[in-house]
Amino acid sequence: MAPIEDRISARWIEVGTHVAFTILVLSFAIYALQILDPLVPLQDLVRLWQLPVDRFVAQTGAPTGWAWLRLLGKGDYLNLLGVAVFVVVTIACYARMVPLFIREGKRTQALFAFLQVVVLLAAASGLFR
């Protein structure tokens, strides 16, 4: 049988991925069917997506950092919720491993799991902007 950390990771990833994928499909349907207005009109997007990201942001007023959370009422940025769940699943999975390794006396591995959480949170925090 696979070690406990592998089995628990498998369960967390499985559940999180299903939730994220469901949100992603539903939010994209809302976007493509234009049930919610997008921030960037679909007709303009075809021209704008050829620009580098800095110019795209400047021309569209697209959010950077965590500002997209304030635009969840827009069809396009609603999709980032599903994307974020995929990414958060990973952090949650590593965070779950820390107490697990400590309980099993695997302090080195607990330290690496903790470091991994710190690195991912640092990346998410906008520290490297």
Partner: peptide
């Protein structure tokens, strides 16, 4: 970790990603 950087810069385009 790299995806957060792109997301944070506004480079995740739903019409391409999803």
């Amino acid at each position: 970790s790299a995806a957060w950087i792109y997301l944070e810069r506004g480079a995740v385009l739903p019409m391409l990603v999803v």
